[in-house]
Design a protein around this nucleic acid. Structure first.
Length: 293
DNA sequence: AATTCGGGGTG
DNA sequence: CACCCAGAATT
């Protein structure tokens, strides 16, 4: 195991105490459900885009029971353009699971959290730490980058999460519940605000003296060649996105011919079938498309 | 281990 | 215009 300077965790926690962003899901009046909702919305979606949607969402559906009772069409419209709308379906499924399995109370143990729809390794750990102040190993894209640089001494982590990274992350987490929760929030914040992917602000980093990447002379990313940027133009995802945008803004069921702008044949039909299969759309008896009730 | 799944801000 | 964002589920 790599030798980690003992001061690293404390330095990041101290830094965080002075600069932590004032996010609504960090407010004293937040609920565990609010934290869970924020974590699902934040999966692959930046904070600035999530914040306004989260506020409206929590105002409208404050508890799991509220969301569990909401029509799917309302949920998908409220999700808006956060992207990956299947997350909205899973979040509604998650609300129903919390109501049915846990009496409407968000569970605080790893097993029960992981069993909820849309809750994976990261989200379960994050909810434990941020909603309940419990020790857990919280590793998101920010934490991966911070430990890759500060400890391992490389520019960026490997494209896929490795067992070595998981072990290193676990070794960094303080034993104490409160300290572990602080480290989780602080290490993520460091990656989000200073140790960023593009242009890291090393000059003001609390770890600038001990950072292994800096001490190694800022070696370049070793797997730059393997990071193929996800294509977008002409993909099913683009076509699906256009269809969903059309259905969200429609007041009544949409005839297929009015969706022709979304993409060429046979791609459009494939995407429409996929959306119906995914539960993101349905057809009425006239074959028109609409958001599911 | 590799793919699929949105959308938009930004350097 | 390529790159990146508090990942999860599926194969």
């Amino acid at each position: 195991m790599q030798q980690v300077p003992g001061q690293v965790v404390a330095q990041v926690i101290d830094w965080f105490a002075g600069v932590a962003r004032d996010l609504p899901w960090r407010a004293p009046d937040r609920t565990p459900w609010g934290v869970l909702v924020s974590e699902v919305m934040l999966q692959q979606t930046p904070v600035v885009r999530v914040e306004p949607v989260w506020r409206e969402w929590m105002d409208r559906w404050p508890t799991p029971a509220d969301l569990a009772a909401a029509p799917t069409a309302d949920v998908l419209r409220a999700w808006g353009r956060l992207g990956y709308p299947r997350r909205a379906l899973r979040l509604a499924d998650c609300a129903r699971a919390v109501v049915e399995r846990h009496d409407g109370v968000v569970p605080d143990d790893e097993e029960a959290l992981r069993a909820l729809p849309g809750v994976g390794e990261y989200t379960a750990a994050a909810v434990r730490a941020f909603a309940f102040g419990r020790r857990s190993v919280v590793v998101d894209t920010n934490v991966r980058r911070v430990q890759a640089r500060a400890v391992t001494g490389v520019a960026l982590p490997a494209p896929t999460y490795t067992a070595a990274e998981r072990r290193l992350a676990a070794s960094l987490v303080p034993d104490d519940d409160a300290d572990a929760a602080r480290w989780a929030a602080a290490s993520m914040e460091l990656g989000a605000l200073l140790c960023t992917a593009r242009v890291p602000r090393c000059g003001t980093c609390p770890l600038r003296e001990s950072c292994a990447w800096r001490l190694a002379g800022f070696p370049p990313d070793a797997h730059a060649d393997k990071r193929r940027t996800q294509s977008w133009e002409g993909t099913d995802r683009q076509v699906r996105g256009r269809v969903m945008a059309a259905l969200r803004s429609a007041d009544e069921p949409v005839p297929r011919v009015l969706l022709a702008d979304a993409g060429p044949q046979p791609q459009l039909d494939r995407c429409l079938a996929g959306l119906v299969e995914d539960g993101l759309a349905e057809t009425d008896d006239a074959g028109r498309y609409l958001l599911p009730a």
